[in-house]
Design a protein around this nucleic acid. Sequence first.
DNA 1: GTCTATAATTTGATAGAC
DNA 2: GTCTATCAAATTATAGAC
Lengths: 187, 187
Amino acid sequence: MRVTQASTGRKIIAAAERRMRECGFHGFSFRDIAADVGIKSASVHHHFPTKEDLGAAVASAYTKRLMDALGDPNDPVRMPEDLIELYVDLYRRALQKGKGRQTCLGGVIACELASLPENVARAGVEFFESSAGWLEAVLRRRSPQAEPEATRAQALRILALLQGATLIAKTLDREDVFEVVAKSALE
Amino acid sequence: MRVTQASTGRKIIAAAERRMRECGFHGFSFRDIAADVGIKSASVHHHFPTKEDLGAAVASAYTKRLMDALGDPNDPVRMPEDLIELYVDLYRRALQKGKGRQTCLGGVIACELASLPENVARAGVEFFESSAGWLEAVLRRRSPQAEPEATRAQALRILALLQGATLIAKTLDREDVFEVVAKSALE
DNA sequence: GTCTATAATTTGATAGAC
DNA sequence: GTCTATCAAATTATAGAC
């Protein structure tokens, strides 16, 4: 069994991600994070001087974790159909792991966009671009002869569907809403 | 030409809705709203004693405005297909009117849910339930013989699609993303 | 790297005059 | 109904001891 190092910096990022996905960027404070981790707020500032630094670190770690979990969209060993299922499954597991209380970080950034520090907003753009790009590559493999615009549209459709499904499932506290909607992403 | 009364209360709600849909519930202050309307923050409190009152008023006015614009889903004069187009068009116009900077209020409430006052969170639940219920009624007319679960699923699918499309279009500052995704809502 | 202490600002909210 | 003035609390952030 592999033990992953949980340094204080990582614990802070994990706590901030959870808070951000439950409450939004303006919905938590350095003191909240400090209490979650079991330290004082001044110590949080030692690791991430400003809230912008913390938010940007959370968002880029989030994107990296997702992209690492997805892997190479052109990996010949994996079928495009399986990769799309993998994509849907990552959203499903994120919802379950957060007990239906967390939305995708991309959605959070979208909703607060105009009030976010520059680097956090930019990380949101990168998240959506990475996600859409990965899906596009997978769909291109599945239908190589399709029009590029149609492939792009299909990628955005899947992304939008999962984003929306997560929002609704969270608000109505009905994880089955996610399942019902996600099924149509595979069509 | 009909002149709509723009009382101070209404102006406050309009300003707060805009701020909330651009920045989130925690992304604006009473002073921001006061400046938008051209009064002082104490005067805003006169109309809406607490921020919870203001947020709940914004959300219920928002839901009411949407449902009024949608009208009776069982109106025999209007074809179900046209009603779905009307629904999509309301999202489209909301995005255009806000110059691509505003998301649906339902999505905002979803993202900040755990940090919102009770009445604001509840208004978000009501928004999604009203929306899904209206769509369900329209789709039932279009396919009366369909399984109720399938009709419900289709309604949630359209709702999720438009929610997600709005988030992505706002973040990437690409209104065409909305068009590309919304097209598949009509299928 | 963590702590105590505190600065500087903002925020939601109230009292009371006009 | 709007204003000035103000409060109490919370927030981000820093200084400096250990």
